[in-house]
Design a protein around this nucleic acid. Structure first.
Lengths: 136, 136
DNA sequence: ACAGGCTTCATACTAAAGTACCAAATATCT
DNA sequence: AGATATTTGGTACTTTAGTATGAAGCCTGT
């Protein structure tokens, strides 16, 4: 938000400056109209590229962000989500159990519940489905 | 390539048109210099946004493209790669076998070889490693 | 023609993954 | 405090995954 305001302020200031410069130049007869037009064109071309890059960058990150709303909708609990993340990293149930200081039985329970909630038959499918829903 | 040429051609034409219009307008005294500047600014701003969007789109796709070179380096054969893709979609060995009209034994062999080549212990880990190497 | 890699498949096995069902401790919310 | 959801864990079982080994047919380059 702050950046947007800054950019637009700079835009207005540069526009105003261009007015003054171009007018003085014309009155003094030193600069040709072609030069002014080219200058303006180049400046605003660069501004266009810059703003677009920024906005695209943001929207790209948003699209790759995790959909927390969807996690709630699917009724995936926080512990289950931790297990899901571990699965996507390629860990086995035993490894996940060690990582979270739990028994393998517990992990199996979580995984089983996850598969039902994600409507998956296997953990590999769960990864795919979770990524489709932008949960991972 | 063709599009780039088209865009630059349009750029030159529009620039030339602006020259003519601005000159006539000034001579005739009908249009203010401010209006011309704003027009040019807007047009080139839009052009900047457009070109940037195009180029970013291409570069983004390139960065997310599959690293075919890496596949060769890891000595993954074409059949093995097909199996790898199927694994990442969450299919079981049986399902992969049906999809490729092969026996489950064959798929198991391919998977086993894949795990060695990818230095993975499980198929889920293979997916993760493959994505890290931009093979998937 | 022959070596070498690729693909295919089988058997026999071990290891993980996943299901079903139950039970208890812990939070959480009203 | 009591209902509810979460988290944890167990047993017993079935299914899938993965390993090891061997073998045969098929291309490809020499």
């Amino acid at each position: 938000m702050k950046k947007t305001i800054l950019v637009f302020t700079l835009l207005i200031v540069s526009l105003y400056t261009l007015f003054r410069v171009s007018k003085y130049s014309l009155i003094l007869g030193e600069t040709s109209i072609e030069f002014i037009i080219i200058t303006i064109a180049v400046i605003f071309f660069i501004i266009g590229v810059y703003i677009n890059k920024k906005s695209l960058h943001k929207s790209r990150n948003i699209s790759e962000e995790i959909n927390h709303q969807k996690i709630k909708e699917m009724e995936i609990t926080s512990r289950e989500y931790e297990v899901l993340q571990a699965i996507s990293k390629g860990l086995s149930n035993k490894e996940i159990a060690e990582k979270l200081f739990l028994s393998e039985s517990t992990i199996k329970t979580h995984v089983s519940n996850l598969l039902v909630k994600l409507n998956a038959k296997r953990r590999t499918q769960a990864i795919q489905i979770a990524k489709d829903h932008k949960i991972l």
